[in-house]
Amino acid sequence: MKVLLGSLVVLAAFVTVCSAQCYIMPKTNFPDDSSNECKDANGVTHPLNSRWKTENCEACFCSQEGIDCCSIVATPVNYDTVKCEKIFNKETCSYTVVEQKDPEKTCDVGGWIV
């Protein structure tokens, strides 16, 4: 019983961390509106059931309810923040962790949070 309870606590914490990087933009539906598209915050329309990646490294999906977006960036944690620094590459939507004094050398990272 304790193992089951502990597993549920860990799962709840994991779901909370993951969902913290997602958001929903509800679709504005008016009576008799059977639109088969979603309009994002930039005014761009996307077909219903389509997926795309934003310039802010988010994966988005257009559904009948609206647009669901989640970050696709894995952030490094548990590394030597005194000796090392994280550098973000917007083109690949990823971080590298390198030594501050010698950026050619990478640093060990203890984990990544998505």
Rank of each mutant, 00 (worst) to 15 (best):
M1H: 15
V3H: 14
V3A: 11
L4S: 03
L4E: 13
G6R: 02
G6S: 13
L8D: 03
L8A: 04
V9I: 05
V9T: 08
V10W: 11
V10N: 10
L11W: 05
A12P: 08
A13R: 08
F14G: 00
V15M: 11
T16E: 14
V17Y: 03
S19V: 15
Q21K: 15
Q21F: 15
C22Y: 14
C22Q: 02
Y23T: 08
Y23F: 15
I24G: 11
I24S: 13
M25Q: 03
M25A: 09
M25C: 07
K27D: 09
N29L: 05
P31Y: 11
D32R: 07
D32V: 02
D33L: 02
D33M: 07
S34M: 09
S34T: 02
S34R: 00
S35K: 11
N36G: 07
E37R: 01
E37F: 14
E37K: 03
C38P: 09
C38N: 11
K39R: 07
D40A: 11
A41N: 08
A41M: 00
A41I: 09
G43R: 00
G43D: 05
G43M: 04
T45V: 12
P47H: 05
L48W: 06
L48D: 05
R51Y: 15
K53Y: 10
E55F: 13
N56M: 00
C57S: 01
E58A: 02
E58D: 02
A59K: 00
C60T: 00
C60E: 01
C62F: 10
Q64F: 09
Q64P: 03
E65P: 03
G66A: 12
G66C: 00
D68V: 08
D68S: 00
D68A: 01
C69G: 06
C70A: 00
C70K: 01
S71C: 08
V73K: 01
V73S: 00
A74Y: 04
V77A: 13
Y79S: 02
Y79A: 01
Y79E: 00
T81A: 11
V82S: 14
V82K: 15
K83E: 12
E85P: 07
K86Y: 06
I87N: 12
I87L: 14
I87G: 03
F88S: 00
K90D: 12
E91D: 14
E91L: 13
E91I: 15
T92I: 13
T92A: 10
C93P: 03
C93W: 01
S94L: 02
S94H: 07
Y95N: 05
Y95R: 12
T96I: 13
V98Y: 05
E99K: 03
K101R: 06
D102V: 12
E104S: 15
T106Y: 04
C107E: 04
C107S: 09
C107V: 08
C107P: 07
C107F: 03
V109F: 08
G110W: 03
G111A: 04
I113W: 10
I113A: 01
V114P: 07
V114A: 07
V114S: 05
